[in-house]
Nucleic acid binder design. Structure first.
Length: 522
RNA sequence: GCUCCCAUCGUCUAGUCCGGUCUAGGACGCCAGGUUCUCAUCCUGGAAACUGGGGUUCGAAUCCCCAUGGGAGCACCA
């Protein structure tokens, strides 16, 4: 039964999906716009959940009140939706394991923290931040292991408790069990650590009367509380995994399975950061990229279907997604390929799922801004044609610059070069005649039918007949002079494209202008 | 510094788990030719890689070790 093999292989690649519907999550902290790396992590988790009929949870890790901002949380939700990555449970949508904002789960964390303190698995630490920073510095320079010194380890629990209540400021640290700890990573296999290297990590901080959980503690609690079965995340979290698993174990909670993939790297192989250009989905969106482009690009950056297919809709990604297609090596951002994907999606509006024409509102805004102040009335269809015409030829990153420079002739009369109007060995009279017949063809076309298709049909028909008798048709005899009359350039989009965009009146005016230059020798 | 992770064309990658079918496949980019009124698109073709060294084996891109290179982590951030 060879036909059954691929399907069977797919199931075997992820056996637990057979017995259990996965619950996965992303847990961004709202300290910035939705990062491209976070978006990719979200996408992988979403694909995994949908592929196996599971649940995708969006949890917000906003325990750092200093840095967390509501507007960033809104951006995360908004951009994910825009990309088509929807979540089944989480902020805004709710669910059975809420609340989904860590800042609203403080009592839950405290409930898990108290027994740890009572059983002396955790203790209060009163070292100042300055002391700790100084100790770290000393450790680093002297080549020692960088970890907490353990200064408060042996404080008597009862007294420490009283002091904490009195001073209202302390750190709760875990007595890290010293052991060799290993876990099975779903993409990398076994990864082992010596927990001695971690030291007594901080679980929470006491500020006033309340405990605020710190990252590893909050995550361990939430992943278990929310019944998360699989954690797919960047490999910058590998060292956190044993910490979270140990915390969970000490709490009597279960841990999910983990899969770590490499992060997105910039051109210079370093972490993608501001100085490399766009780092957030919003920036790409505002530049005018299609959501389909970003999803397609991000998916193939670090994941591969094992086939030659490059173009994927979200649904196609869901159908093809498996964990073993995930790369273990880092993937470098490839701007050229992003541009290529955008051109592919530009030419395939029928495949697109969010906007049905090539023009996104963001791109329209951008073009309208460039158009501002020009004297022609621009209809929306015209802008769409313009967008498609320009995007087919140039990277999206340069659109504004191009419209203001290279493609100025869409908005203002070009300077015409008499010689440039000539196609091959045409005489002045030939050029004039060509422009004349163009006028004759164009004039009867009503404004309402002034479209790319109609113009092409009529002009092409004429171009075919306007050839030297006895020889094969030379369309250039008509099309070249018209195109140059409209653009003033040696290289430009075709005459139909330009004419459709600048409109009937302007087209005829420019043809007339060209004729004037031809008949009036300088 | 210590720990962990990674290593196929410039880039994303297939192939690695189960050594032979790999004179290493696809895509982006690049180069050349063709189609086309020019440019772009499109089509055809091309250059372009198994990091190095040791093993194991009849045979290694594929398994093992070392080296080198790259990345990440080592907070009262997440």
């Amino acid at each position: 039964m060879p036909t059954l093999l691929p399907a069977l292989k797919k199931l075997l690649a992820f056996p637990s999906a057979l017995v259990q519907r996965p619950r996965v999550r992303i847990a961004p902290s709202p300290t910035g716009l939705l990062h491209l790396g976070t978006a990719r992590t979200a996408l992988f988790n979403f694909l995994f959940a949908k592929r196996y009929g599971g649940t995708f949870v969006l949890r917000i890790e906003d325990t750092d009140i200093e840095r967390s901002k509501p507007e960033f949380e809104r951006d995360i939700a908004e951009q994910l939706r825009w990309l088509g990555i929807s979540w089944d449970e989480g902020i805004e949508t709710g669910g059975a394991f809420g609340p989904y904002r860590q800042s609203e789960r403080l009592p839950i964390y405290e409930r898990y923290l108290q027994p740890l303190l009572e059983h002396d698995r955790a203790y209060f630490c009163f070292c100042s931040e300055e002391t700790l920073a100084a100790q770290r510095e000393t450790q680093r320079t002297s080549g020692e292991i960088q970890r907490y010194s353990g200064a408060c380890q042996s404080l008597a629990p009862k007294e420490a408790r009283q002091r904490a209540a009195r001073e209202k400021r302390a750190i709760v640290r875990l007595r890290m069990p010293e052991e060799h700890f290993a876990f099975e990573d779903l993409v990398r296999g076994e990864i082992a650590f010596d927990t001695v290297l971690f030291g007594d990590i901080a679980l929470a901080k006491l500020d006033g009367k309340r405990f605020f959980p710190l990252y590893n503690f909050a995550v361990a609690v939430d992943d278990a509380e929310m019944r998360i079965t699989h954690v797919l995340r960047g490999d910058d979290h590998i060292a956190n995994t044993p910490k979270q698993m140990i915390i969970a174990r000490l709490l009597g909670l279960s841990s999910p399975q983990y899969a770590h993939f490499s992060m997105i790297l910039a051109q210079d192989r370093s972490k993608l950061s501001k100085r490399h250009g766009a780092t957030s989905v919003r920036e790409l969106r505002e530049a005018g990229y299609f959501p389909e482009t970003i999803v397609n690009f991000l998916a193939l950056l670090g994941w591969n279907p094992g086939t030659d297919q490059e173009l994927f809709t979200l649904q196609e990604l869901i159908d093809a997604f498996t964990l073993d297609g995930i790369q273990s090596g880092g993937a470098i951002w490839n701007q050229d390929k992003l541009e290529w994907f955008n051109r592919q999606w530009l030419g395939a509006p029928a495949r697109r799922w969010l906007t049905h024409d090539a023009l996104t509102p963001e791109l329209e805004k951008k073009i309208v801004a460039v158009l501002a102040g020009n004297r022609w009335h621009v209809r929306k269809e015209t802008i769409a044609t313009l967008a498609a015409t320009v995007l087919e030829r140039a990277p999206l990153a340069n659109v504004e610059e191009l419209l203001a420079g290279e493609y100025r002739y869409f908005f203002e009369k070009p300077r015409l070069d008499r010689e440039l109007l000539r196609w091959k060995d045409m005489a002045d009279e030939d050029v004039e005649r060509a422009l004349d017949s163009a006028k004759e063809i164009l004039e009867p076309i009503p404004e309402g039918e002034w479209t790319q298709n109609r113009l092409e049909r009529d002009l092409m028909a004429a171009a075919e007949s306007l050839s030297v008798s006895g020889e094969k048709p030379d369309r250039g005899r008509l099309l070249w002079p018209v195109r140059v009359a409209l653009s003033g350039k040696k290289q430009s989009p075709g005459p139909f494209d330009i004419a459709a965009i600048i409109g009937k009146e302007e087209t005829l005016a420019r043809i007339q202008e060209a004729q004037n230059i031809i008949v009036r020798p300088k």
